[in-house]
């Protein structure tokens, strides 16, 4: 089995997003960037499937600036075999990403594409599902468990009321949720080894799809601020204020 894992370079999850004063977006200059945490889980899952003998090859693909190579290298150090960078400095929306990925799938013919359920920058939660629709593939989104057997995957999904398990025929899309696994840290020897693994350099034009944004950003603003309230001295005071002042009890 061959697995394709798309990865995205995003603002590190520990860094607080700051809105630019001109309201054009979030300031990404001189801040720490990392692999989208859900994508790390995807890479980890693919590597585990390979270690279990279920998969033979893992290809990682990123769509982004030159520096997204670092993100690909991280995935290679975790155990992926080779990378593809589709280099662009423009913002590509999930629809455009899904179209590019559909072309990569055409060329690479993977049996499974494992994606993070959402990127923590745009929080769109859409790319995997869109790719599924474009390819006509089934999907197991928000996965907390994936089992491969007999040309199908049993995917346990995190849903609002609990867990749901579905069976999807391969080839298929899986999007990963937090509890699927705990991603490993790459060891130093593996980081060194990853430097010699190949990364194929591409540009969006190589794929001939329209990735022009459909959404025009009117403005990006700070959310309304919540003022800190008061510190109460005791539980009695707290309950009394909730009843008499806030009127919520």
């Amino acid at each position: 089995m061959k697995i394709l894992v798309p990865v995205k370079r995003v603002l590190d999850y520990n860094v607080k997003a700051r809105v630019k004063p001109d309201q054009s977006g979030v300031d990404l200059s001189n801040v720490k960037m990392s692999m989208n945490p859900f994508d790390e889980i995807s890479v980890e899952e693919a590597v585990r499937l390979k270690e279990d003998g279920k998969a033979e090859e893992i290809v990682v693909v990123s769509i982004g600036p030159e520096k997204a190579q670092e993100t690909i290298r991280t995935a290679l150090a975790m155990g992926a075999d080779r990378g593809i960078l589709i280099k662009t400095d423009e913002t590509v929306e999930p629809l455009g990403v899904a179209k590019l990925l559909a072309k990569v799938v055409e060329e690479e013919s993977p049996d499974m594409v494992v994606l993070g359920k959402q990127a923590i920058d745009d929080d769109a939660n859409a790319t995997g599902q869109m790719l599924g629709a474009l390819l006509g593939w089934p999907q197991g989104t928000f996965a907390s468990k994936v089992e491969i057997a007999d040309g199908a995957a049993n995917v346990t999904r995190e849903v609002d009321g609990g867990l749901q398990t579905i069976k999807i025929n391969l080839p298929a899309i899986v999007t990963t949720d937090l509890r699927l696994n705990e991603p490993r840290y790459a060891s130093l020897p593996n980081i060194m080894k990853a430097k010699r693994k190949p990364i194929d350099m591409k540009v969006p034009d190589d794929y001939g799809v329209d990735i022009a944004p459909r959404l025009q950003v009117v403005k990006v603003t700070e959310p309304p601020k919540r003022e800190a309230g008061e510190i109460v001295e005791s539980v009695e005071e707290l309950v009394s204020k909730l009843k008499n002042e806030a009127g919520v009890l």
Partner: peptide, 30 residues
């Protein structure tokens, strides 16, 4: 392009949605 997790509808084409875990609110026109 889907408009995900919209928190306000300004008009038939313009929507507000949170990004970066709600640390920024983005107004977009589709």
């Amino acid at each position: 392009m889907q408009l995900s997790d919209v928190t306000a509808v300004e008009d038939a084409d313009t929507f507000v949605r949170p990004i970066y875990a709600g640390n920024a609110m983005m107004t977009v026109k589709s």
